[in-house]
Computed example of a mutant assay.
Amino acid sequence: MTPQILDRTVPGSQIGNPTGAYPIFDATGSTIAPRRWNTAGSPLIYPSEHFSTALLEKLVHGSGRLQPNQHFIQLTFPKGLSYEVFSPPALPGWDEMPATVSKAFGERWYGERRSAILIVPIGVARLYRNILVNPAHPDSRAIEASLLQPVFWDRWLFAA
């Protein structure tokens, strides 16, 4: 993959607990509980392209339980930011569990600091994407976050 430069601004969404141990737009949680694309040694931030897919990710990683005090921020990935788009055919096994193939890929991308963001498919909804942020990349400081807004969990999400 070759890094490219965004020719427009791109939106994103991140959900978290503003009174929790870590800020919403922070990679610390990914060092404690690494996910598909990182290890404890390669901290990443996992926003989604859309609020709905950020909500889906919270439901998946919360095992379907409501997490208290959830808020979201809208992110702006500015024009001129470096990025890469992951191509699933280029990495067979990226979606297997355990996620050793994708973790190795993400750790290498993090360490090489080729781009500020990496756009990857969401494992549970592959048509949609997460926008991984490498906080060690100097361009990541250009990403802007909105003010916090509360997440309202609709009861229909949990109706039997």
Rank of each mutant, 00 (worst) to 15 (best):
I15Q: 06
G29M: 11
R35P: 08
P92N: 00
G16C: 11
F158D: 02
V120D: 04
A160T: 13
L91M: 05
R65T: 05
P150I: 03
I117N: 04
P150Y: 00
Y128Q: 14
W153S: 02
Y46I: 13
E107H: 14
F105P: 06
D154A: 08
M97F: 11
D139S: 04
S146K: 05
R36A: 12
A40Q: 11
L44K: 02
G20H: 05
Q70K: 15
Y46L: 14
G93N: 01
V101S: 00
H137C: 11
F72A: 03
P23I: 01
R114D: 10
V120L: 06
V151L: 08
P23R: 01
Y110Q: 09
Y128H: 14
R126T: 12
K103E: 13
M97R: 11
R114N: 12
K79G: 02
R108W: 15
I131V: 15
T2M: 08
A104F: 05
V85Y: 00
F77Y: 15
L148C: 11
E96G: 02
S52W: 10
G64D: 04
F25L: 15
E96Y: 06
A21S: 09
L66Y: 00
F77M: 12
H50P: 00
P11I: 00
Q67A: 12
P92H: 00
T76K: 07
P3Y: 01
L6N: 10
S48K: 03
P34R: 04
A136Y: 13
H61D: 12
G12I: 03
A116W: 02
L6W: 02
A90M: 12
Q67W: 04
H137Q: 09
Q70I: 01
A90T: 12
S30A: 15
I122N: 06
I45Q: 06
P23C: 00
H61L: 14
